[in-house]
Computed example of a mutant assay.
Amino acid sequence: MRVFIAIEFEQHIKDYLNKIQKQVMSYSTDGNFSRPENFHLTLKFIGEVQPSFLGSITAAMAQSVHGIKPFKLRLHNLGNFPRGNKMIIWMGVGGELDVLNLLFNQLETSLGSIGIAKDTRGYSPHITLGREVRLAVPFSKVASAVAIDHQQQIIEVHKISLMESKREEGRLMYIPLHRQPLAD
């Protein structure tokens, strides 16, 4: 099984991200764009595991949320990771980033205790809108043309989710396997 830990979004956030994604697509000549139902904020990509290991992961998730109360993030800005003549286009997040980073660090520690390697690159929170995107104009033009409502698009974080990534009928699906509430 291929798994990762993420923050899932309410439908209104997915709908808003889809609206932004469509604007980006209008400036694109090519790309592999995320399906709106798959929008999420990855906390930790784990990769391939045996189903028998899932209990250890969910126990580590429970340990990682100790002392973390629900918090709020907001959609922030468009960004990109260049990949040759293509790029990954993403939406950044703002808000209570100190709490998000604490959650990430505690998750890294608890997963590390069960043998999952820590991320050496550090945490760069982003929501992938499209991969292998080719733009018809410079990215800076797209970023300035796409207006993002920073104040209205609030992501309320009450839980973290263990997700399975798999293909069904050729379509990439992210299926929640376990949802771990934050401490109240």
Rank of each mutant, 00 (worst) to 15 (best):
Ala6Glu: 08
Glu8Val: 10
Phe9Glu: 01
Glu10Val: 12
Tyr16His: 06
Tyr16Ala: 06
Lys19Tyr: 11
Ile20His: 07
Gln21Tyr: 12
Val24Glu: 00
Val24Thr: 05
Ser26Gly: 01
Tyr27Ile: 00
Gly31Ser: 03
Gly31Ala: 04
Asn32Thr: 09
Phe33Lys: 04
Pro36Ile: 08
Glu37Ser: 12
Phe39Thr: 08
His40Gln: 11
Thr42Cys: 13
Lys44Asp: 07
Ile46Asn: 08
Pro51Phe: 01
Phe53Gly: 01
Gly55Asn: 14
Gly55Thr: 15
Ile57Cys: 03
Ile57Gly: 01
Ala59Trp: 03
Ala60Ser: 15
Ala62Pro: 00
Gln63Pro: 01
His66Ser: 15
His66Met: 09
Ile68Pro: 00
Lys69Cys: 04
Pro70Ala: 13
Phe71Ile: 09
Arg74Thr: 10
Leu75Tyr: 07
Leu75His: 08
His76Asp: 13
Leu78Arg: 05
Leu78Tyr: 07
Leu78Trp: 03
Asn80Ile: 00
Asn80Gln: 06
Phe81Cys: 03
Arg83Ala: 13
Arg83His: 08
Asn85Ile: 03
Lys86Thr: 11
Met87Leu: 05
Ile89Glu: 01
Met91Leu: 15
Gly92Glu: 09
Gly95Lys: 09
Glu96Trp: 00
Leu97Cys: 13
Asn101Leu: 13
Asn101Met: 14
Leu103Gln: 04
Asn105Thr: 07
Gln106Asp: 10
Gln106Gly: 08
Thr109Arg: 10
Gly115Cys: 12
Gly115Met: 10
Ile116Pro: 02
Asp119Gly: 10
Thr120Met: 07
Tyr123Ile: 11
Tyr123Val: 10
Thr128Phe: 05
Leu129Arg: 07
Leu129His: 12
Arg131Tyr: 04
Arg131Ile: 02
Glu132Arg: 10
Val133Lys: 06
Arg134Trp: 04
Leu135Tyr: 00
Ala136Ile: 04
Ser140Phe: 00
Ser140Gln: 05
Ser144Asp: 03
Ala145Leu: 02
Val146Ala: 01
Val146Thr: 03
Val146Ser: 02
Ala147Arg: 11
Ile148Ala: 10
Gln151Ser: 11
Ile155Asp: 06
Glu156Gln: 14
Val157Asn: 13
His158Lys: 14
Lys159Gly: 15
Ile160Trp: 12
Leu162Phe: 14
Pro176Ser: 14
Pro176Phe: 13
His178Phe: 15
Gln180Val: 06
Pro181Thr: 02
Pro181Leu: 05
Ala183Ser: 07
